[in-house]
Computed example of a mutant assay.
Amino acid sequence: MTRKAAVHVRRVYEEPAQDDGTRVLVDRVWPRGLTKEKAGLDEWCKEIAPSTELRKWYSHDPQRFEEFGRRYRSELKEPERAQALGRLKETAKDGALTLLTATKEPEISQAQVLADLLGG
């Protein structure tokens, strides 16, 4: 029986939690006003972020989240993103993984799509 990975989604601006495990920022752009020290990251995986075109089209419109997720999952099949997703899958096997994003609504972000894919 395989153990289900603990995958969390949090805002990068929140204080790190004790159960975070490995903390990975999954945004393409560095969060405004945040120092690397304050972020407390283990990795910045910007290559897994959605394309600029998809991000601009989506614009965090809750009505578009389902379609955004479908399009983003399609983008994750591209070689560079697929390789990054594979690395995140390996990280999740080793213990807790927290996907971080700067968005105000992480539950409708690429981090949530990734967490769902990774078993969170």
Rank of each mutant, 00 (worst) to 15 (best):
G69K: 08
L85E: 01
A115K: 01
A102V: 01
G119A: 08
E43K: 10
D116A: 12
D61P: 01
D19Y: 04
R23Q: 07
T98F: 01
A84K: 02
Y72M: 14
F65C: 11
S74P: 02
E107N: 14
L34P: 05
K89Y: 07
L76C: 13
I48E: 02
V7W: 00
K89N: 10
H60E: 14
E80M: 14
T98V: 01
E37G: 02
R71G: 13
P79H: 13
R81P: 01
P16S: 10
A49I: 11
L41H: 10
G21S: 09
T103S: 15
D27E: 10
G69L: 03
W57Q: 09
V26C: 04
I108N: 07
I108C: 08
V113Q: 05
L41V: 08
P62M: 07
T2M: 08
A92Q: 09
A5L: 08
E75I: 05
V9I: 05
T103G: 07
T22A: 14
P62N: 13
G40N: 11
H8L: 13
L114Q: 02
G21D: 07
R11G: 06
Q112W: 06
L100P: 00
T35V: 05
L54I: 09
P31T: 11
L25M: 11
E66V: 14
A102W: 00
R73E: 15
